[in-house]
Amino acid sequence: MRPPLYTPLALLGTAALMTLALYATQGTAKPPAVWNWMDIIGEGGTALFAGVWLALILSSRPGGRVTTLLALGLGAITLGALADCLDEFWKIAPQAHWDHWLEGVLTPGGMLTLTVGLYFWRQEQFALNEHLLRRERLFREHRAFDRITQLANADYLRRQITLEQARAPDAPCALVLLDIDRFHLINREFGRAEGDRVLQALSHLLLLNLRNDDLLCRYAGDRFAVLLPETDDAAAQAIATTLRNAVEQLAWHTRSGARLALSARVVAAVADTSPGSLLDALNHAIEPAARRPGGALQAA
């Protein structure tokens, strides 16, 4: 659960107002003629942006140690920069030390806390990457993820093929397509929600049957694609067969309790051409025979 945004922000607002009140009551106002605009913009801007970052962090992350550290750090930096900025408007008697304390402790302390928070965030990210293993490679693009299976889409796949070819031009990389037989009947007879559940289950099943460096994508509809880095044709065919067998072994039960026997068609090829022509060729090869123009009439 995300923590409510308003409590920490209200605390920060209160602290900012108290700082303002402190300067307004304890200091003597400087005439506008001596205001240093560069300092005001620089320090005020720092305070403003640190506050915005705090709001973004709080609104997007679940609560916990990392979030608390990041929030405290950014909050302290906001207040430190604010105190620094208010310094430009009010002159504080030199014998008072509280203003040095405000600036000198809040800003470095905030940076230290933020750094600790970022360190733990890194640890947290390593743990999350374990979950994303075989779902993403090399770079992250959140818009590429499919809503139902949480797998990346065909755009992401095409870019990954190009990257993989550039990264290891001498090592072969291979691509497998897998298409579920008669998937449309599941949607027709049991509804689309059931079809979506099957796709989710299949994506988990396929992930379990892949190596850590492989990438599973939902190409479109009921067609999955697997990018196999540093894999030759024979190994790719073997992996394709393993995946097809895994789909056939799955004992799927619908919500209504019916047992569905699933099967799939697979094709595999070494990715030695452009992603576009490779995918065109594989998509052609995976089609059921009768659908191809010129295909023979067959009994259903």
């Binding site: 065909a154 479109a220 067609r223 995918l279 998509n283 659908r291 123009p293």
Partner: peptide, 26 residues
């Protein structure tokens, strides 16, 4: 059964033809 339809489109080829390929054929 699948019928061997051929599809003609009065527009340029989309950059991401995967949905056409999977739902209509190649």
């Amino acid at each position: 059964e699948h019928l061997p339809w051929r599809y003609h489109f009065n527009r340029t080829r989309p950059r991401s033809p995967e949905h056409h390929q999977v739902h209509l054929g190649s």
